[in-house]
Design a protein around this nucleic acid. Structure first.
Length: 115
DNA sequence: GGTCTGACTAGGT
DNA sequence: AACCTAGCCAGAC
């Protein structure tokens, strides 16, 4: 935040973006996981909103999925298709039910420790 | 400035 | 396994 209400698009969002950008190619993280890493444990929803507000193409928003290992459905199904496409492009495989194995592709934040 | 909304989640039916 | 509910809380109106 800031004293003068400058651009503060909410430091929360910025932190979320920072975390999301840490997710390595070929891995996925859940909203809850990102929330926790961003220091806002329990506010998985905010993560979703933050991603929704993304305009920056450099943020791998598609690597964030819900706790069920599926792509969260949203108002426009076109995004879900795109997201799946992007993930498959990174080598991530979907089950017959359209789910991703978190056990297999779930991001293990050891990457963060690398600084 | 009070309400409504939602890219979530965990827990209960 | 599908569906419902209650917490959550920053934006949009």
């Amino acid at each position: 935040m800031n004293v003068r209400g400058q651009k503060t698009k909410s430091t929360t969002y910025k932190t979320i973006y920072k975390i999301v950008m840490q997710i390595p190619r070929g891995s996925v993280a859940t909203y809850g996981q990102v929330a926790k890493l961003a220091g806002i444990s329990g506010q998985a929803r905010q993560v979703g909103y933050a991603l929704n507000a993304i305009t920056d193409n450099h943020i791998p928003w598609h690597r964030v999925i819900n706790a069920k290992g599926e792509i969260s459905p949203r108002s426009d199904s076109a995004f879900a298709r795109l997201q799946r496409e992007l993930l498959e492009h990174e080598g991530i495989k979907f089950s017959s039910q359209g789910k991703i194995s978190l056990q297999l592709y779930g991001w293990k934040p050891a990457t963060l420790l690398n600084k």
